[in-house]
């Protein structure tokens, strides 16, 4: 048939299928990102725990996860965990693996955000007698969040782009669907090209969204970088 030239008719035909898969892919990445944000905070706090054993164990866990490839973790969860009776679907595995992997990265983002809060805030909270939880909730968190929007937002862009990895275990995300079409029609150029363009567009949209959230949230007071001398 037409080998080598881009077949626009085929492209038009498969576009709706790929668009549908894009929805799932983005939703998966978003779900994993939200869960990773939720996981990252306790991990970060545990790593700063006063009990040295807890802090060290958490630190080891974070470094272990960060230093091993996501694909290995995906394979481990999908192929090795059934040995101990834990069987998960490709979709669940994908979300779980990404949550775990990026939760560890995001805990480091939280850490950098916490470190950026001036030490005087801790001093004054002790001086005023703030209970620990109230202090973190009302004083520290509102100062950390604007500082981590940009770096954490970077991870969502990254996570969307990493989802093709999950096609390796048969998660029906964008890349899997594209490969499927390729195998069926013996034409890879069109589906893979479209997938590339779709990823480009979603990444750009996500990046713009992150930037506007950052601008909206940061404008209130983080605009100027000088407070408390």
């Amino acid at each position: 048939m037409n080998s080598g030239w881009f077949d626009f008719a085929l492209a038009a035909e498969i576009l709706p299928i790929l668009a549908a898969a894009t929805g799932l892919t983005v939703c998966m990445a978003l779900a994993a990102f939200i869960l990773a944000m939720l996981l990252g905070l306790p991990l970060c706090l545990l790593r700063r725990a006063k009990v040295p054993a807890v802090a060290r164990a958490t630190g080891f866990f974070i470094e272990f996860i960060r230093s091993t490839p996501l694909l290995v973790q995906v394979y481990f969860i999908y192929f090795a965990l059934p040995n101990v009776g834990i069987v998960l679907s490709p979709l669940t595995t994908g979300i779980l693996a990404m949550t775990l992997h990026y939760g560890c990265y995001l805990s480091e983002v939280y850490r950098s955000g916490l470190d950026a809060v001036p030490s005087g805030q801790w001093d004054v909270s002790t001086a005023l007698g703030f209970p620990r939880f109230a202090f973190y909730r009302w004083i520290i968190l509102p100062q950390v969040v604007p500082r981590i929007i940009a770096p954490a937002g970077g991870f969502i862009v990254y996570m969307i782009k990493e989802t093709p990895l999950l096609s390796a275990i048969g998660t029906v995300e964008l890349m899997y669907v594209a490969k499927d079409i390729g195998q069926e029609r013996f034409q890879y150029l069109e589906p893979i090209t479209i997938v590339g363009v779709i990823f480009l567009i979603t990444s750009l949209v996500a990046a713009v969204a992150v930037r506007s959230i950052e601008a909206a949230y940061g404008r209130a007071w983080l605009g100027k970088e000088r407070f408390n001398g």
Binding site: P118, G120, Q121, D123, V124, A127, L128, G129, F130, P131, A134, W138, I139, P142, Q143, A220, W221, F227, N228, G229
Partner: peptide, 28 residues
Amino acid sequence: KIGMVFQSFNLFPHMTVLRNVAEAPVRV
């Protein structure tokens, strides 16, 4: 019984002046 004022002010940058003063009485 003890209150302390620091060289570097250490105000809460994300709160208005009123809230800076009122926050500890509310939370503590």
